[in-house]
Amino acid sequence: MKANIDNAVAEIRTVLEQVHALVPNATTSLAGYPMLFSRTQACSTLVSASQRVILNDVAVLRGQAA
C-alpha cells in the first residue's frame, strides 16, 4: 500500500509541476484526507474497532504523502 501511495505522490508532483509551468503565477493548494472515524468512540456496528484504526491510518498516511 505504501508503494502505491509513494507512486501517487510522484505522479501528483509531476502534475503540479506541469500546472506551475502552464500558470506560474497561480496559487495551488493540495489538501489531505481527514480521519474517517473517531479513535475513541464506536460509531458503527458495521466497522470494527480494528478496521477503524486501519482506515484512519490509511487516511493519515495519504495525508502525509501529499
Rank of each mutant, 00 (worst) to 15 (best):
A49R: 11
A8M: 14
V58T: 10
L46H: 09
N25L: 12
Q51G: 02
L16S: 00
T28L: 15
E17I: 04
S44G: 02
H20M: 04
S50Q: 13
L22Q: 09
A31R: 03
V23M: 12
L46I: 05
S29V: 14
A66C: 07
I12N: 11
Y33T: 05
V19M: 11
N7Q: 14
L36K: 08
N25D: 15
I54S: 06
A66T: 10
N4G: 11
L36Y: 09
M35R: 13
R52Q: 13
R13E: 14
V15A: 12
A10H: 06
S48F: 05
V23P: 01
T14V: 02
A49L: 03
S44H: 05
M35P: 03
N7G: 07
A66P: 03
L30V: 15
G63I: 00
P34V: 06
R39Q: 10
R39W: 03
K2L: 12
Q64Y: 03
S48P: 07
A3K: 11
T28Q: 11
T27F: 02
V47K: 06
V23N: 13
V15I: 13
S48R: 10
Q41Y: 02
A3H: 07
R62E: 08
P24K: 01
A21F: 01
M1K: 10
N56F: 06
A65E: 09
L30Y: 08
F37H: 15
N7V: 07
P34C: 05
T27A: 06
L46N: 04
